[in-house]
Amino acid sequence: MHPNISKWWQTIKISWSKTLTYRVNFLMQIIGPALVFFFIKYNLWNSIYAGDESTVIAGYRFPEMITYHVWTLVVGLVGISNNSAGISEEIRLGKISSYLIYPFNFWEFHTASFLAFEVIQYLVASITLVILFYIGVLPDVSALHTVLGFIFCFFVACFWFSMQFIVGLIAFWLNETWSIRIILITLTSFLSGYLIPLELYPSWLTDILAYTPFPYLSFYPVKIFMGDTTHFFSGLAILIGWSFVSFFVGSLIFKKGVRLYTAAGM
């Protein structure tokens, strides 16, 4: 076995152990907000449709609208939930000194932790999906489209992780980066179709959004889960392209930033 594979595997196992040791934190910080947000959206749309299942809003009847939001819940859990808050904290508190010495670098460590997190999130999303299906909130599920959707979501998660990694690296210059992280999350939720389907947005806005990666973070993955695979391959290509760009930008920022690093506390 390549020696690095073992390091990746050990890091993944440590990450699982860390996440599952603080189960209440995990439940309240990652799963809880997604479920509460879905609960609010369910009630809101129920109130908007006022119990009339024949009403059509931007092409969606009530069951379809709820199905859309069930899938945004899944995309939110597996695609855009990683916040990489630890990256900026490690830089700020001078903890990255060890990565400069160890034969397993900073990026490798955080990417392995991200992969571990994704495995747990896929498990949580699958359980959530089964529960929602059995209580009748999700009326119809296609196995093929669910698999395709989950594959797509993995690439969403990779791009989202690389964005979060860049935001974390800004800690080389800024004392606090959480505000930038929340700005990114707020804008992404709004512009990606996570809050409401993009079909409801004015056409001038969706025309602009077509030139950005935002719709690929929620709207298109949800559409794939719902059976529309038109953008599957083009979407994957765009996400992979953006992930490479952000990976190289992240590498450049790390190289620049590490020159400024003062190893606080050493």
Binding site: V24, N25, L27, M28, G32, P33, V36, F37, I40
Partner: peptide
């Protein structure tokens, strides 16, 4: 795990 109670608070704000 004292931090997590703040997330409950924030969810109630959303409601």
């Amino acid at each position: 795990e004292t931090i997590s109670i703040n997330f409950v608070r924030m969810q109630l704000q959303s409601l």
